[in-house]
Write a protein that binds this DNA or RNA. Structure first.
Length: 552
RNA sequence: GUCCCUGUAGCUCAGUUGGAUAGAGCGACUGCCUUCUAAGCAGUAGGUCGUGGGUUCGAGCCCCUCCAGGGACGCCA
């Protein structure tokens, strides 16, 4: 990447300056390359001399002059200048810039990919909602975050596995089963009361109706525990199927659907707890089993096995992470959780450390609350109360592309308002259309070119010399850097801003530069440029999981 | 009470890990369709970056105080 090339140039220059006695021997700070916000300052800049000034003991400007003097000419760089208070600015060569159009076209679908990850095994687990009810709006945020992050990490050279953890064991599922049982009895005209902690949503009633229609006869022969178990099994499958379908509507898919129950079935659970016990992090007290997180600086210990002998969800989460790191040997793991799990983060990291794994290998991203509004009014979302605004409902109203873009356009750790009415109204001037429109416009140009028999194969990119053309090329060259930033910060929202920037420079180019014209050579060159732009826009939309329309 | 997240233009939010004159979209205002899609373009207005201190060549970004909004503190998940 260009940034690395420039870093190397500076490093070499500093070494040479030292050998020439112009700079003292010191440990070099990391050479950071920045993008100046003011285009007059060039394409890239380094503030290395400002950072060195204190140790060297001379003015940053003088240091910058020394370093700049030793920077060798290169194919990419037009000029190296020094600006107060001590920046070294790099401007790219137009000739090199235009050549990148050919290079992008050659890379095609792999353009933007980088080697940062070097094939490291990384797992990203997200959504993982209890299969006891449909996905609601808030879950969509985590889903989009995870799936986009996975796309970006994949492009950054990681070997990414997307996983959904199915909580098919424990209390909540038990309550789900009993809710189904009660609704079943009611449906066949018997007296039955919903359990106190039951799921009151109408979807349970609908589901029971469907189950009876399909398997009523078979179930009629069962009763009590047997019936509850059978209903639960069918219900979980149906619920999971619906969750899967809802996610697919938004182009969110998984490589692995991991069952919590399997941790018990293959005794991973015992192994994990045993491992903690050996290391002295397990204590028996007050009739329960505790994870001694206070030994690791936590506020309090946490129960792993209850007085009645049943494990808590924390216990299976320990086993689950044992499995991720020690069984399946992921180099790093990303968990995306909802805001209600925030308090769980530090103790989970403590567990990972207690298992002998570097806690740095686990990153937990908290996707903050989504407040739903209709007009000005806040809509309460609660799975228990039955007042659900489902994700499916949202996708059907505003469309998958707009949903993805909207959820993606904010950092995960800030809360967001989602106004349903606004989202619906917005559909005409939503930024998503602005970006897609740029893509469709290019497609339209290419159609016209084809009609007129214009061809770009012999296009000479060195003809692309005007400002709008060069600005467009510069913006296209940013994609690998965006992917790098996302891989490092795990913040995929940068994509939405990049997409808008790219669309803006294209629309501006479009206004100022005619592509298909009587000038055959220029037409060919510009056709290459817009083909490259279409490719980069398409890649960006693809990374965000959005469609890139040919016409609108 | 303890811990976590947030506070930047009228509104919704970015801000490349401490750099140069703090940016975008929406909204407001002014122009631009005989030429490849006006779902577009060009421009104007709009800011004590919640508050007060500190760290240093340099702070929206780092540290501390306080204020405001939200969330978590269960042998629920």
């Amino acid at each position: 990447m260009l940034k690395q090339t420039i870093t190397e140039l500076i490093k070499k220059a500093i070494i040479e300056a030292r050998q020439a006695g112009k700079l003292p021997e010191l440990t070099l700070p990391e050479i950071a390359i920045e993008r100046p916000q003011n285009p007059e300052h060039g394409d890239y800049a380094s503030s290395i001399s400002l950072k060195l000034a204190r140790a060297v003991g001379t003015s940053p400007l003088a240091i910058a002059d020394e370093i700049a003097g030793f920077i060798k000419p290169s194919a990419e760089i037009e000029s190296v200048t020094v600006a107060p208070p001590g920046f070294i600015n790099f401007t790219l060569k137009n000739e090199w810039l235009t050549q990148q159009v050919d290079s992008i076209l050659k890379d095609a679908d792999t353009y933007g990919n980088i080697e940062l990850g070097q094939g490291k095994k990384i797992q990203i687990e997200f959504v993982s909602v209890n299969p006891t009810g449909p996905l609601h709006v808030g879950h969509g945020r985590g889903a989009i975050l995870g799936s986009t992050l996975a796309n970006a990490l994949n492009s950054a050279g990681y070997s990414v596995e997307k996983e959904y953890y199915i909580n098919d064991a424990g209390n909540q599922v038990d309550s789900f089963r009993r809710s189904l049982y009660a609704r079943y009895l009611q449906a066949i005209g018997k007296e039955a009361e919903m359990p106190a902690d039951g799921y009151l949503g109408n979807y349970i009633i609908d589901m029971v109706r469907e189950i009876i229609a399909a398997e009523g006869e078979k179930l009629g022969k069962l009763s009590g525990e047997e019936l509850t178990t059978a209903l639960g099994k069918i219900g979980l499958e149906k619920m999971l199927g619906q969750i899967k379908a809802d996610l697919e509507m938004m182009d969110v898919t998984f490589d692995v659907w991991f069952s919590e129950q399997s941790l018990y079935d293959n005794r991973q659970y015992e192994t994990a707890i045993e491992s903690l016990k050996k290391r002295g992090y397990i204590a028996e007290r007050e009739g329960a089993t505790w994870f001694v997180s206070t030994a690791l600086g936590e506020d309090k210990d946490n129960v792993v096995v209850r007085t009645d002998g049943t494990p808590t969800y924390f216990a299976t989460d320990i086993a689950y992470h044992y499995n991720k790191f020690l069984e399946r040997k992921f180099d790093s793991v990303i968990d995306i959780w909802g805001a209600d799990h925030m308090g769980h983060v530090s103790r989970m990291k403590a567990v990972v450390g207690a298992l002998g794994i570097d806690p740095e290998q686990l990153t937990v991203i908290i996707s903050q609350m989504v407040t739903l509004r209709r007009g000005g009014e806040v809509v309460k979302i609660s799975k228990r109360s039955g007042d659900i605004v489902t994700l499916r409902e949202l996708v059907e109203e505003v469309g998958a592309d707009a949903c993805r873009f909207f959820f993606l356009s904010r950092t995960a750790d800030s809360q967001m308002d989602f106004d349903l009415e606004l989202a619906k109204k917005q559909s005409a001037d939503n930024p998503v259309y602005y970006v897609q429109y740029a893509h469709a416009r290019i497609a339209s140009i290419l159609r016209l070119a084809q009609e007129k028999g214009a061809d770009s194969t012999d296009g000479d990119v060195s003809l692309l010399t005007t400002e709008p053309e060069l600005i467009l090329i510069r913006k296209m060259l940013l994609l690998p850097e965006i992917i790098e930033t996302i891989a490092q910060t795990l913040e995929p929202h940068h994509l939405t801003y990049y997409a808008q920037d790219l669309a803006t420079v294209f629309h501006s180019f479009y206004m100022q530069c005619r592509v298909v014209s009587d000038d055959k050579a220029m037409t060919a060159a510009r056709l290459k440029l817009v083909r490259a732009a279409k490719l980069v826009l398409g890649r960006t939309l693809g990374l965000m999981g959005m469609t890139a329309p040919e016409r609108m």
